[in-house]
Write a protein that binds this DNA or RNA. Structure first.
Lengths: 192, 192
DNA sequence: GCGCTGACTGAAACGTGTTCTAATAGGCGT
DNA sequence: ACGCCTATTAGAACACGTTTCAGTCAGCGC
């Protein structure tokens, strides 16, 4: 990402951190990034696009972090549970920002299909990685279909939980519990 | 719901059916319902609130429909699969409307926590009903915790799938497939 | 150096969700 | 019938996402 674009995203993040979705007023973002409003719109199609870019960035960072310290645990259930716990904690550390980004990605604007899909794929990869243990995704072992189904289902449960949290339906612990419960239900008999 | 409010919701539904979320301009809704703009805001906190009310109404209708023809099938997997297939078809019959309502409920405005929760609970009840077979929810059998966990997880998978469909990430068949896959993973050993 | 091109700027303008206000209407107890 | 209260109305007003436009600037080929 180019310098100017990065400044814009960072400004959006700062504003979102303080005041959530509504606080990300694009005029303010532009001013804060020392850029004209038109420039923001040259780089990003919409407010949602901008916030999804922020989310993408954050996931990238977390992916880096995971490569250093891959989720450990003896069983798939342990690893996947601890992965979601860590990811949730990391995301919810800045609740206003998290809510803003989740709202953007949940809006489901058809203009942003690709970026939504990219987000889901990234999370999918992380889940797959945690299911397997150490190894990075796309390396060595080909994904079998059970693994794919597991990863996608867990990713969706996490997403739905995040939306619920974002709307105040339940607390941060609810996210972790719900994903763990789902993982337990799907990995009942597995102990590998 | 009172007459005036019903007219407002119905107007919103008509507009959404034709042009989706953006087509639901509250000025138009008011004009169409033969009501002043202020009256719309007296009854509904926001555009999202209005569309969630439409969703709630639609779920209520579908629940009625289900009481007449409860999902049939020998196993839990069969019933739950056929339930989601039917519900998805029913919802996606009017795609613009569906997308508008889903967007509203996915936005996760903390003002609307209660209505979001109500939506999730209603879907939960329907899923529980289909897991059990004929009997209505809350009657006779108390919900055990495995059943609760199953229902909630499946409801979340369905919701996430709907959001994905709404954003164009996958087609209507993707919704059905993803929920079926999740159900299969969780009901592998069960044949009751 | 010169001109071209594409990005950037500042500012205005537009649409729509949301709020506000003053005026009116309708019902209800007395 | 009268006063009161609440819902409703028409319409203005405001905020903010988004678009548009005319003017400026920077780099780059020549």
């Amino acid at each position: 990402m180019e310098e100017r674009a990065r400044r814009i995203v960072e400004s959006a993040v700062e504003l979102a951190e303080k005041g959530g979705f509504e606080a990300v007023r694009l005029r303010d973002v532009a001013a804060h990034a020392d850029v004209a409003l038109g420039t923001v719109y040259r780089r990003f199609r919409s407010k949602e696009d901008l916030l999804i870019a922020a989310l993408d960035r954050q996931i990238g960072d977390y992916q880096q972090h995971l490569l250093q310290r891959p989720p450990n645990g003896a069983t798939r259930l342990d690893r996947v549970t601890s992965f979601f716990q860590g990811a949730t904690r990391s995301l919810c550390r800045r609740p206003n920002l998290a809510r803003a980004m989740i709202r953007a990605v949940a809006t489901g604007d058809p203009e942003l299909t690709q970026k939504m899909a990219a987000f889901h794929n990234r999370v999918n990869d992380l889940v797959t990685m945690s299911l397997r243990g150490a190894s990075a995704p796309g390396e060595g072992v080909p994904t079998n279909s059970e693994e794919q189904a597991l990863a996608r289902t867990l990713q969706m449960v996490w997403f739905a939980s995040l939306v619920g949290w974002s709307g105040g339906v339940h607390g941060q612990s609810g996210i972790v519990e719900q994903t763990r419960t789902a993982a337990e239900l799907m990995l009942r008999d597995s102990d590998e």
